[in-house]
Design a protein around this nucleic acid. Structure first.
Lengths: 209, 209
DNA sequence: GATTGTGAATAGATTCACAGCT
DNA sequence: AGCTGTGAATCTATTCACAATC
Protein backbone atom coordinates (compact mmCIF):
# COMPACT_ATOMS: atom_id res chain seq x y z
CA UNK A 1 0.00 0.00 0.00
CA UNK A 2 2.59 2.61 -1.04
CA UNK A 3 0.61 5.22 -2.93
CA UNK A 4 1.38 8.89 -3.55
CA UNK A 5 3.79 8.45 -6.44
CA UNK A 6 2.57 6.66 -9.56
CA UNK A 7 4.94 5.16 -12.11
CA UNK A 8 3.74 7.02 -15.19
CA UNK A 9 3.92 4.08 -17.56
CA UNK A 10 1.90 1.91 -15.21
CA UNK A 11 -0.84 4.51 -15.09
CA UNK A 12 -1.87 4.13 -18.70
CA UNK A 13 -1.94 0.39 -18.26
CA UNK A 14 -4.54 0.76 -15.54
CA UNK A 15 -6.85 2.23 -18.17
CA UNK A 16 -6.24 -0.80 -20.34
CA UNK A 17 -6.97 -3.17 -17.46
CA UNK A 18 -10.11 -1.23 -16.66
CA UNK A 19 -11.40 -1.57 -20.19
CA UNK A 20 -10.69 -5.29 -20.11
CA UNK A 21 -12.51 -5.68 -16.80
CA UNK A 22 -15.53 -3.86 -18.16
CA UNK A 23 -15.63 -6.25 -21.09
CA UNK A 24 -15.42 -9.23 -18.73
CA UNK A 25 -18.17 -7.80 -16.56
CA UNK A 26 -20.45 -7.41 -19.58
CA UNK A 27 -19.88 -11.09 -20.26
CA UNK A 28 -20.86 -11.93 -16.71
CA UNK A 29 -17.42 -13.23 -15.68
CA UNK A 30 -16.96 -12.73 -11.93
CA UNK A 31 -13.36 -13.77 -11.30
CA UNK A 32 -10.23 -13.63 -13.38
CA UNK A 33 -6.59 -14.57 -12.82
CA UNK A 34 -3.72 -12.33 -13.96
CA UNK A 35 -2.72 -15.12 -16.31
CA UNK A 36 -6.05 -15.33 -18.11
CA UNK A 37 -6.44 -11.58 -18.21
CA UNK A 38 -3.00 -11.34 -19.78
CA UNK A 39 -3.47 -14.01 -22.41
CA UNK A 40 -6.90 -12.82 -23.37
CA UNK A 41 -5.94 -9.18 -23.86
CA UNK A 42 -2.34 -9.51 -24.95
CA UNK A 43 -0.79 -8.32 -21.68
CA UNK A 44 1.87 -9.55 -19.25
CA UNK A 45 0.70 -11.42 -16.14
CA UNK A 46 3.53 -10.44 -13.75
CA UNK A 47 3.14 -6.85 -14.86
CA UNK A 48 -0.57 -6.87 -14.14
CA UNK A 49 0.12 -8.17 -10.66
CA UNK A 50 2.84 -5.65 -9.99
CA UNK A 51 0.79 -2.74 -11.31
CA UNK A 52 -2.22 -3.68 -9.23
CA UNK A 53 -0.21 -4.40 -6.09
CA UNK A 54 0.83 -0.71 -6.16
CA UNK A 55 -2.59 0.17 -4.86
CA UNK A 56 -3.02 -2.47 -2.20
CA UNK A 57 -3.73 -6.18 -2.15
CA UNK A 58 -6.99 -6.93 -3.77
CA UNK A 59 -6.46 -10.23 -5.43
CA UNK A 60 -7.19 -13.48 -3.65
CA UNK A 61 -4.31 -15.96 -3.65
CA UNK A 62 -5.26 -19.22 -5.21
CA UNK A 63 -8.33 -17.63 -6.84
CA UNK A 64 -7.61 -14.45 -8.75
CA UNK A 65 -9.30 -11.06 -8.85
CA UNK A 66 -12.94 -10.21 -8.38
CA UNK A 67 -13.95 -8.48 -11.61
CA UNK A 68 -16.45 -6.02 -10.20
CA UNK A 69 -14.52 -4.95 -7.14
CA UNK A 70 -11.29 -4.57 -9.07
CA UNK A 71 -13.08 -2.51 -11.70
CA UNK A 72 -14.45 -0.23 -8.99
CA UNK A 73 -11.06 0.08 -7.36
CA UNK A 74 -9.41 1.07 -10.65
CA UNK A 75 -12.15 3.57 -11.37
CA UNK A 76 -11.43 5.08 -7.99
CA UNK A 77 -7.67 5.20 -8.52
CA UNK A 78 -8.15 6.82 -11.92
CA UNK A 79 -10.58 9.36 -10.54
CA UNK A 80 -13.47 8.03 -12.59
CA UNK A 81 -15.86 7.76 -9.68
CA UNK A 82 -16.41 11.50 -9.83
CA UNK A 83 -17.72 13.46 -12.76
CA UNK A 84 -15.32 15.71 -14.57
CA UNK A 85 -16.60 18.69 -16.49
CA UNK A 86 -14.45 19.85 -19.39
CA UNK A 87 -14.43 22.90 -21.63
CA UNK A 88 -13.17 22.85 -25.21
CA UNK A 89 -11.28 25.84 -26.58
CA UNK A 90 -11.36 25.97 -30.37
CA UNK A 91 -14.39 25.01 -32.44
CA UNK A 92 -12.58 24.04 -35.64
CA UNK A 93 -12.49 20.52 -37.04
CA UNK A 94 -10.95 18.87 -34.03
CA UNK A 95 -12.78 20.86 -31.38
CA UNK A 96 -16.11 20.15 -33.03
CA UNK A 97 -15.38 16.45 -33.41
CA UNK A 98 -14.39 16.23 -29.77
CA UNK A 99 -17.54 18.02 -28.64
CA UNK A 100 -19.49 15.23 -30.30
CA UNK A 101 -17.17 12.41 -29.25
CA UNK A 102 -19.12 9.84 -27.20
CA UNK A 103 -16.20 9.12 -24.84
CA UNK A 104 -16.40 12.72 -23.70
CA UNK A 105 -20.05 12.70 -22.92
CA UNK A 106 -20.58 9.43 -21.13
CA UNK A 107 -19.42 8.10 -17.82
CA UNK A 108 -17.03 10.27 -15.86
CA UNK A 109 -16.53 13.02 -18.44
CA UNK A 110 -18.81 15.60 -19.93
CA UNK A 111 -18.31 18.67 -22.04
CA UNK A 112 -19.95 21.74 -20.60
CA UNK A 113 -18.87 24.43 -23.06
CA UNK A 114 -17.08 25.15 -26.32
CA UNK A 115 -15.29 28.43 -27.04
CA UNK A 116 -13.96 30.02 -30.19
CA UNK A 117 -12.52 33.42 -30.88
CA UNK A 118 -13.94 33.62 -34.41
CA UNK A 119 -17.10 35.79 -34.35
CA UNK A 120 -18.51 33.76 -37.23
CA UNK A 121 -18.48 30.66 -35.05
CA UNK A 122 -19.77 32.23 -31.84
CA UNK A 123 -23.41 31.34 -31.37
CA UNK A 124 -23.24 28.26 -33.60
CA UNK A 125 -24.68 25.04 -32.17
CA UNK A 126 -22.71 21.84 -31.71
CA UNK A 127 -25.11 19.18 -30.49
CA UNK A 128 -26.81 20.88 -27.56
CA UNK A 129 -23.95 23.29 -26.86
CA UNK A 130 -23.55 26.81 -28.18
CA UNK A 131 -20.12 28.14 -29.16
CA UNK A 132 -19.17 31.01 -26.85
CA UNK A 133 -16.75 33.87 -26.70
CA UNK A 134 -13.49 33.02 -24.86
CA UNK A 135 -14.02 36.15 -22.76
CA UNK A 136 -16.60 34.12 -20.88
CA UNK A 137 -14.11 31.33 -20.14
CA UNK A 138 -13.31 32.17 -16.51
CA UNK A 139 -16.95 32.74 -15.67
CA UNK A 140 -18.08 29.47 -17.25
CA UNK A 141 -15.32 27.42 -15.62
CA UNK A 142 -16.28 28.93 -12.30
CA UNK A 143 -20.01 28.38 -12.65
CA UNK A 144 -19.78 24.84 -14.02
CA UNK A 145 -16.93 23.71 -11.78
CA UNK A 146 -15.05 22.47 -14.85
CA UNK A 147 -11.72 20.90 -13.93
CA UNK A 148 -10.41 20.05 -17.40
CA UNK A 149 -9.70 22.01 -20.54
CA UNK A 150 -9.23 20.73 -24.06
CA UNK A 151 -7.09 22.82 -26.37
CA UNK A 152 -8.03 22.47 -30.02
CA UNK A 153 -6.60 25.72 -31.38
CA UNK A 154 -3.78 26.38 -33.87
CA UNK A 155 -0.20 26.01 -32.61
CA UNK A 156 0.43 29.73 -32.36
CA UNK A 157 -2.62 30.28 -30.14
CA UNK A 158 -1.97 27.33 -27.82
CA UNK A 159 0.23 28.94 -25.16
CA UNK A 160 -2.03 31.93 -24.69
CA UNK A 161 -5.14 29.78 -24.37
CA UNK A 162 -3.36 27.43 -22.00
CA UNK A 163 -2.69 30.40 -19.73
CA UNK A 164 -6.31 31.43 -20.04
CA UNK A 165 -7.40 27.95 -18.96
CA UNK A 166 -4.97 28.00 -16.05
CA UNK A 167 -6.21 31.42 -15.03
CA UNK A 168 -9.80 30.23 -15.23
CA UNK A 169 -9.00 27.47 -12.76
CA UNK A 170 -8.83 24.17 -14.63
CA UNK A 171 -6.33 21.64 -13.27
CA UNK A 172 -5.61 19.53 -16.34
CA UNK A 173 -5.38 20.20 -20.08
CA UNK A 174 -5.51 17.93 -23.08
CA UNK A 175 -3.55 19.69 -25.82
CA UNK A 176 -4.11 18.88 -29.48
CA UNK A 177 -1.97 21.73 -30.80
CA UNK A 178 1.43 20.66 -32.10
CA UNK A 179 3.48 22.51 -29.49
CA UNK A 180 4.97 21.48 -26.20
CA UNK A 181 3.54 23.72 -23.50
CA UNK A 182 5.51 24.63 -20.42
CA UNK A 183 3.46 23.48 -17.44
CA UNK A 184 2.54 26.12 -14.91
CA UNK A 185 1.11 25.87 -11.40
CA UNK A 186 0.84 22.10 -11.48
CA UNK A 187 -1.78 22.30 -14.22
CA UNK A 188 -1.02 19.06 -15.98
CA UNK A 189 -0.75 19.05 -19.78
CA UNK A 190 -1.16 15.94 -21.86
CA UNK A 191 -0.12 16.39 -25.48
CA UNK A 192 -1.91 14.55 -28.24
CA UNK A 193 0.35 15.26 -31.14
CA UNK A 194 -0.92 13.69 -34.34
CA UNK A 195 2.10 14.90 -36.27
CA UNK A 196 4.40 12.86 -34.04
CA UNK A 197 2.25 9.75 -34.42
CA UNK A 198 2.22 10.10 -38.18
CA UNK A 199 5.96 10.57 -38.30
CA UNK A 200 6.46 7.47 -36.20
CA UNK A 201 4.46 5.50 -38.75
CA UNK A 202 6.31 7.11 -41.65
CA UNK A 203 9.56 5.98 -40.07
CA UNK A 204 8.27 2.44 -39.90
CA UNK A 205 7.33 2.58 -43.56
CA UNK A 206 10.83 3.46 -44.67
CA UNK A 207 12.83 1.45 -42.16
CA UNK A 208 11.27 -1.95 -42.65
CA UNK A 209 10.65 -2.58 -46.29
CA UNK B 1 26.47 4.67 -37.20
CA UNK B 2 24.53 1.69 -35.86
CA UNK B 3 21.15 1.92 -37.58
CA UNK B 4 18.54 -0.76 -38.20
CA UNK B 5 17.08 -0.82 -34.70
CA UNK B 6 15.61 2.39 -33.36
CA UNK B 7 15.05 2.93 -29.66
CA UNK B 8 11.32 3.63 -29.73
CA UNK B 9 11.36 6.48 -27.23
CA UNK B 10 14.12 8.25 -29.12
CA UNK B 11 12.08 8.11 -32.30
CA UNK B 12 9.35 10.41 -31.06
CA UNK B 13 11.98 12.83 -29.85
CA UNK B 14 13.34 13.11 -33.38
CA UNK B 15 9.98 14.56 -34.38
CA UNK B 16 10.29 17.10 -31.60
CA UNK B 17 13.81 18.05 -32.69
CA UNK B 18 12.63 18.35 -36.26
CA UNK B 19 9.90 20.74 -35.31
CA UNK B 20 12.38 22.82 -33.33
CA UNK B 21 14.80 22.91 -36.26
CA UNK B 22 12.06 24.06 -38.59
CA UNK B 23 11.26 26.91 -36.21
CA UNK B 24 14.94 27.87 -36.07
CA UNK B 25 15.20 27.76 -39.84
CA UNK B 26 12.20 30.08 -40.20
CA UNK B 27 14.05 32.51 -37.94
CA UNK B 28 17.10 32.29 -40.17
CA UNK B 29 19.34 30.65 -37.54
CA UNK B 30 22.00 28.58 -39.29
CA UNK B 31 23.80 26.79 -36.48
CA UNK B 32 22.72 25.58 -33.07
CA UNK B 33 24.42 23.73 -30.21
CA UNK B 34 22.74 20.89 -28.34
CA UNK B 35 22.85 23.11 -25.27
CA UNK B 36 20.97 26.00 -26.81
CA UNK B 37 18.52 23.71 -28.55
CA UNK B 38 17.84 22.06 -25.22
CA UNK B 39 17.37 25.20 -23.19
CA UNK B 40 15.22 26.89 -25.77
CA UNK B 41 12.80 23.98 -26.24
CA UNK B 42 12.90 22.42 -22.80
CA UNK B 43 14.96 19.37 -23.76
CA UNK B 44 18.07 17.61 -22.46
CA UNK B 45 21.36 18.38 -24.21
CA UNK B 46 23.15 15.03 -23.68
CA UNK B 47 20.01 13.27 -24.84
CA UNK B 48 19.86 15.29 -28.02
CA UNK B 49 23.48 14.41 -28.78
CA UNK B 50 22.96 10.73 -28.04
CA UNK B 51 19.76 10.54 -30.06
CA UNK B 52 21.36 12.21 -33.06
CA UNK B 53 24.58 10.22 -32.84
CA UNK B 54 22.45 7.11 -33.48
CA UNK B 55 22.27 8.12 -37.10
CA UNK B 56 25.84 9.15 -37.73
CA UNK B 57 28.02 12.10 -36.83
CA UNK B 58 26.61 15.26 -38.18
CA UNK B 59 27.46 17.84 -35.61
CA UNK B 60 30.68 19.81 -35.73
CA UNK B 61 32.74 19.71 -32.54
CA UNK B 62 33.32 23.12 -31.14
CA UNK B 63 30.56 24.58 -33.31
CA UNK B 64 27.27 22.69 -33.09
CA UNK B 65 24.80 21.47 -35.69
CA UNK B 66 23.93 22.97 -39.06
CA UNK B 67 20.21 23.66 -38.87
CA UNK B 68 19.30 22.97 -42.48
CA UNK B 69 21.36 19.85 -43.00
CA UNK B 70 20.27 18.35 -39.69
CA UNK B 71 16.65 19.10 -40.54
CA UNK B 72 17.06 17.31 -43.86
CA UNK B 73 18.76 14.37 -42.24
CA UNK B 74 15.96 13.98 -39.69
CA UNK B 75 13.35 14.23 -42.41
CA UNK B 76 15.14 11.44 -44.20
CA UNK B 77 15.38 9.24 -41.11
CA UNK B 78 11.69 9.77 -40.38
CA UNK B 79 10.72 8.99 -43.96
CA UNK B 80 9.41 12.49 -44.59
CA UNK B 81 11.34 13.00 -47.79
CA UNK B 82 8.81 10.84 -49.62
CA UNK B 83 5.11 11.48 -49.89
CA UNK B 84 2.81 9.16 -48.04
CA UNK B 85 -0.74 8.67 -49.22
CA UNK B 86 -3.27 7.70 -46.56
CA UNK B 87 -6.85 6.48 -46.60
CA UNK B 88 -9.32 7.16 -43.80
CA UNK B 89 -11.82 4.49 -42.82
CA UNK B 90 -14.83 5.93 -41.03
CA UNK B 91 -16.41 9.26 -41.90
CA UNK B 92 -17.92 10.07 -38.51
CA UNK B 93 -16.81 12.97 -36.33
CA UNK B 94 -13.21 11.98 -36.03
CA UNK B 95 -12.73 10.70 -39.58
CA UNK B 96 -14.21 13.87 -41.01
CA UNK B 97 -12.10 16.11 -38.77
CA UNK B 98 -8.97 14.21 -39.80
CA UNK B 99 -9.81 14.48 -43.49
CA UNK B 100 -9.76 18.25 -43.04
CA UNK B 101 -6.77 18.33 -40.67
CA UNK B 102 -4.01 20.49 -42.20
CA UNK B 103 -1.17 18.28 -40.87
CA UNK B 104 -2.54 15.45 -43.01
CA UNK B 105 -2.64 17.42 -46.22
CA UNK B 106 0.64 19.27 -46.22
CA UNK B 107 4.22 18.16 -46.50
CA UNK B 108 4.84 14.43 -46.52
CA UNK B 109 1.27 13.27 -45.93
CA UNK B 110 -1.89 13.50 -47.92
CA UNK B 111 -5.31 11.91 -47.69
CA UNK B 112 -6.42 10.25 -50.90
CA UNK B 113 -9.74 8.73 -49.88
CA UNK B 114 -12.35 8.43 -47.14
CA UNK B 115 -14.55 5.37 -46.69
CA UNK B 116 -17.69 4.70 -44.69
CA UNK B 117 -20.04 1.76 -44.57
CA UNK B 118 -23.13 3.89 -43.95
CA UNK B 119 -25.04 4.33 -47.24
CA UNK B 120 -26.26 7.72 -46.02
CA UNK B 121 -22.66 8.94 -45.91
CA UNK B 122 -21.43 7.41 -49.15
CA UNK B 123 -21.23 10.06 -51.83
CA UNK B 124 -21.00 12.95 -49.34
CA UNK B 125 -18.22 15.47 -49.92
CA UNK B 126 -15.50 16.25 -47.37
CA UNK B 127 -13.41 19.07 -48.78
CA UNK B 128 -12.53 17.80 -52.24
CA UNK B 129 -12.92 14.12 -51.37
CA UNK B 130 -16.01 11.99 -51.77
CA UNK B 131 -16.93 9.35 -49.17
CA UNK B 132 -16.75 5.91 -50.76
CA UNK B 133 -17.93 2.39 -50.11
CA UNK B 134 -15.37 0.24 -48.22
CA UNK B 135 -15.79 -2.40 -50.93
CA UNK B 136 -13.60 -0.17 -53.07
CA UNK B 137 -10.84 -0.08 -50.44
CA UNK B 138 -8.42 -2.58 -52.02
CA UNK B 139 -8.82 -1.06 -55.45
CA UNK B 140 -8.25 2.49 -54.20
CA UNK B 141 -5.20 1.56 -52.11
CA UNK B 142 -3.78 -0.21 -55.13
CA UNK B 143 -4.41 2.58 -57.60
CA UNK B 144 -3.26 5.42 -55.34
CA UNK B 145 -0.28 3.58 -53.86
CA UNK B 146 -1.51 4.48 -50.36
CA UNK B 147 0.79 3.14 -47.67
CA UNK B 148 -1.08 4.28 -44.56
CA UNK B 149 -4.55 3.75 -43.18
CA UNK B 150 -6.38 5.73 -40.53
CA UNK B 151 -9.01 3.90 -38.53
CA UNK B 152 -11.78 6.15 -37.26
CA UNK B 153 -14.54 3.60 -36.76
CA UNK B 154 -16.32 2.41 -33.58
CA UNK B 155 -14.44 -0.03 -31.36
CA UNK B 156 -16.45 -3.06 -32.46
CA UNK B 157 -15.64 -2.47 -36.14
CA UNK B 158 -11.93 -1.76 -35.66
CA UNK B 159 -10.46 -5.26 -35.97
CA UNK B 160 -12.39 -6.11 -39.11
CA UNK B 161 -11.40 -2.86 -40.80
CA UNK B 162 -7.80 -3.27 -39.73
CA UNK B 163 -7.76 -6.62 -41.52
CA UNK B 164 -9.32 -4.97 -44.55
CA UNK B 165 -6.56 -2.36 -44.57
CA UNK B 166 -3.90 -5.04 -44.21
CA UNK B 167 -5.45 -7.01 -47.04
CA UNK B 168 -5.57 -3.92 -49.20
CA UNK B 169 -1.84 -3.48 -48.76
CA UNK B 170 -1.20 -0.59 -46.38
CA UNK B 171 1.86 -0.95 -44.16
CA UNK B 172 0.97 1.27 -41.21
CA UNK B 173 -2.26 2.14 -39.41
CA UNK B 174 -3.19 4.97 -37.07
CA UNK B 175 -5.99 3.66 -34.87
CA UNK B 176 -8.41 6.00 -33.12
CA UNK B 177 -10.75 3.25 -31.96
CA UNK B 178 -10.44 2.41 -28.26
CA UNK B 179 -9.20 -1.16 -28.75
CA UNK B 180 -5.77 -2.67 -28.86
CA UNK B 181 -5.35 -4.39 -32.22
CA UNK B 182 -3.19 -7.44 -32.65
CA UNK B 183 -0.56 -6.58 -35.27
CA UNK B 184 -0.44 -8.83 -38.31
CA UNK B 185 2.14 -9.16 -41.09
CA UNK B 186 4.33 -6.38 -39.77
CA UNK B 187 1.62 -3.82 -40.46
CA UNK B 188 2.40 -1.37 -37.69
CA UNK B 189 -0.43 -0.04 -35.56
CA UNK B 190 -0.20 3.17 -33.57
CA UNK B 191 -3.04 3.65 -31.13
CA UNK B 192 -4.38 7.11 -30.37
CA UNK B 193 -6.62 6.39 -27.46
CA UNK B 194 -8.34 9.50 -26.19
CA UNK B 195 -9.97 7.58 -23.38
CA UNK B 196 -6.59 6.69 -21.95
CA UNK B 197 -5.37 10.28 -22.16
CA UNK B 198 -8.48 11.53 -20.42
CA UNK B 199 -8.14 8.95 -17.69
CA UNK B 200 -4.53 9.94 -17.14
CA UNK B 201 -5.65 13.52 -16.61
CA UNK B 202 -8.50 12.44 -14.35
CA UNK B 203 -5.98 10.57 -12.23
CA UNK B 204 -3.92 13.72 -11.90
CA UNK B 205 -7.00 15.65 -10.80
CA UNK B 206 -7.72 13.32 -7.91
CA UNK B 207 -4.17 12.48 -6.87
CA UNK B 208 -2.76 15.96 -6.48
CA UNK B 209 -5.26 18.21 -4.79
C1' DG C 1 37.39 27.89 -25.82
C1' DA C 2 33.52 25.57 -27.31
C1' DT C 3 30.98 21.60 -28.43
C1' DT C 4 30.43 17.00 -30.15
C1' DG C 5 30.34 11.84 -29.58
C1' DT C 6 30.62 8.15 -26.35
C1' DG C 7 31.88 4.81 -22.60
C1' DA C 8 30.77 4.42 -17.84
C1' DA C 9 27.39 5.30 -14.13
C1' DT C 10 22.82 5.79 -12.70
C1' DA C 11 18.05 5.45 -12.75
C1' DG C 12 13.87 3.32 -14.23
C1' DA C 13 10.90 -0.37 -15.96
C1' DT C 14 10.06 -5.22 -16.87
C1' DT C 15 10.52 -9.97 -16.11
C1' DC C 16 11.59 -13.89 -13.29
C1' DA C 17 11.02 -17.05 -9.64
C1' DC C 18 9.30 -18.34 -5.51
C1' DA C 19 7.52 -17.82 -0.71
C1' DG C 20 3.03 -17.36 1.28
C1' DC C 21 -2.12 -17.49 1.18
C1' DT C 22 -6.63 -19.67 0.17
C1' DA D 1 -3.27 -27.20 -6.45
C1' DG D 2 -3.63 -22.49 -7.91
C1' DC D 3 -2.63 -17.86 -7.87
C1' DT D 4 -1.14 -13.55 -5.72
C1' DG D 5 2.43 -10.34 -4.03
C1' DT D 6 7.23 -9.25 -4.08
C1' DG D 7 12.42 -9.21 -3.76
C1' DA D 8 16.06 -10.13 -6.86
C1' DA D 9 17.75 -10.16 -11.68
C1' DT D 10 17.55 -8.39 -16.11
C1' DC D 11 16.81 -5.24 -19.50
C1' DT D 12 16.16 -0.42 -21.20
C1' DA D 13 16.74 4.46 -20.97
C1' DT D 14 18.85 8.59 -19.26
C1' DT D 15 22.46 11.28 -17.41
C1' DC D 16 27.20 12.20 -16.50
C1' DA D 17 31.86 13.28 -17.53
C1' DC D 18 35.54 13.59 -20.50
C1' DA D 19 38.59 12.64 -24.52
C1' DA D 20 38.51 14.00 -29.32
C1' DT D 21 37.85 17.65 -32.54
C1' DC D 22 37.19 22.09 -34.55
Amino acid sequence: MASGDTPPLALNRLSVYLRALRALQREGIERISSQRLASRFGLSAPQIRKDLAQYGEFGIRGIGYDVVSLRRRLEHVLGLDRRHAAVIVGAGNIGTALARFPGLNTGAFHIVAVFDIDPKRIGARIGDLTVRDPLELAEVVESTGADMGILAVPAEAAAENYFALVGAGVRAVLNFAPVRLEEVDGVRVKDVDLTIFLEELAHHLVSSS
